[in-house]
Amino acid sequence: MSAQPPQVTATLAALQLIETLHARHGPLLFHQSGGCCDGSSPMCFAQGDFIVGDRDVQLGEIGGAPFYISPSQFAYWKHTQLIIDVVPGRGGMFSLENGEGVRFLVRSRLFSDDEFAQLKDAGKV
Rank of each mutant, 00 (worst) to 15 (best):
D38L: 04
G39E: 12
G39T: 03
S41C: 03
P42S: 01
C44H: 06
F45D: 01
D49P: 02
D49L: 05
D49M: 11
F50R: 14
F50D: 00
V52L: 15
G53D: 03
G53E: 09
R55E: 15
R55S: 11
R55Q: 14
V57R: 00
V57T: 12
V57M: 05
V57W: 02
Q58I: 06
L59I: 01
I62E: 01
Y68L: 08
I69N: 09
I69H: 10
S70T: 10
S72Y: 08
S72V: 01
F74M: 06
W77C: 02
W77H: 05
K78P: 02
K78R: 15
H79E: 07
T80N: 08
Q81D: 09
L82G: 03
L82H: 06
D85L: 08
V87T: 09
V87I: 03
R90H: 13
G91L: 04
M93V: 14
S95D: 08
N98S: 15
N98R: 09
G99F: 06
G101C: 08
G101T: 12
R103G: 05
F104K: 04
F104Y: 06
F104N: 00
L105I: 09
V106Q: 10
R107K: 05
R107M: 03
S108K: 09
S108D: 11
R109G: 06
R109P: 04
L110Q: 09
F111A: 12
F111S: 10
D113S: 13
D114C: 06
D114G: 10
D114A: 08
A117E: 13
Q118A: 14
D121L: 07
A122I: 15
G123D: 06
G123W: 13
